[in-house]
Nucleic acid binder design. Structure first.
Lengths: 155, 155
DNA sequence: TTTAAATTTTAGGATTGGCTAATATTTTTT
DNA sequence: AAAAAATATTAGCCAATCCTAAAATTTAAA
């Protein structure tokens, strides 16, 4: 048993072709904001993520180079087909974690933040385990009830 | 319902007096490595965390300034009383998350990495929820069994 | 006790993703 | 169509944390 530790930074580094945590946040948000109209404007995106426009510009340029989005100077932002596919998965992951945490009794006003933080760190395998747990409770209503009961008794 | 999103970087910023994710990793490791002898050498620490010695030097200097550890150039590293107290909590948190994830069926060979990533992101409240869940299973053995069963049926 | 080996530090560089201030472009208003 | 307002970009800076290469210090060996 050779325990092999690394620092957080190292674990979070993206050696594969996967996205950085912040990129995932941008992609998710672009997905959400462009559902209705098919596009987003840079300042909407910046506002939604609570960053300054120059930060969004920089990130959006990077994402365009990675072909996650279509973007030209001063234009509108739209998702590429890749971006759309990835975005969809990110949103799904987000919602799974949200539901998972909710089930465990995380307070409503912390839910979003906790989800936002956790979603970027977990592996596919872990996500699947979360999904399984949710399913387990769905097909075992009695357990779900007892758990809910237990949680509220702890408040 | 005013959903207020931020990017991962913003969530992970430490405005309070709390430590960065990497600092937490260093502190945890120093705690582990200094249990027996009461001190650690810089190169042991660097080795254990898979970083190069200069990286460890820099971090250790910063942590000494924050009075988490006692350190003087070329000397040994020992925990200050503050550092010891915080370290103890970090280890406890680590172990809680490890147990939590194990219960959910995360595979043995991913357990450490997943724990290492999640431990730096969650709030006190969320940790408490994890603890509650573990307790719930301890006092409801039948549920624990059914869950374990369910998980292995999913493999 | 001088030399060699091990350990640690310093110096300088890279990446990520924020920021502000100033500039450029586009859109809207008059 | 010219002026004003809104939007977006560029330039340059900051902090965290990693890295390599070279220099300094300490420890061990001959």
């Amino acid at each position: 048993m050779n325990e092999d530790f690394y620092t957080f930074s190292e674990y979070m580094k993206k050696e594969n072709n996967s996205l950085t945590a912040s990129m995932e946040d941008y992609l998710e948000m672009i997905y959400r904001l462009s559902i209705k109209t098919g596009f987003v404007r840079l300042h909407e995106l910046a506002d939604a993520l609570n960053v300054q426009p120059p930060s969004a510009t920089k990130m959006v340029q990077k994402m365009a180079e990675l072909n996650l989005i279509n973007y030209e100077k001063y234009g509108v932002i739209t998702l590429s087909s890749t971006g759309k596919a990835i975005g969809k998965n990110l949103i799904k992951r987000h919602n799974t974690i949200l539901e998972f945490l909710k089930t465990l009794g995380i307070e409503e006003n912390h839910l979003l933040e906790e989800t936002e933080k956790i979603e970027h760190t977990i592996s596919e395998n872990t996500l699947q385990c979360f999904t399984n747990f949710i399913e387990f409770l769905k097909s075992n209503k009695d357990v779900k009830e007892r758990l809910t009961e237990y949680i509220s008794s702890k408040k």
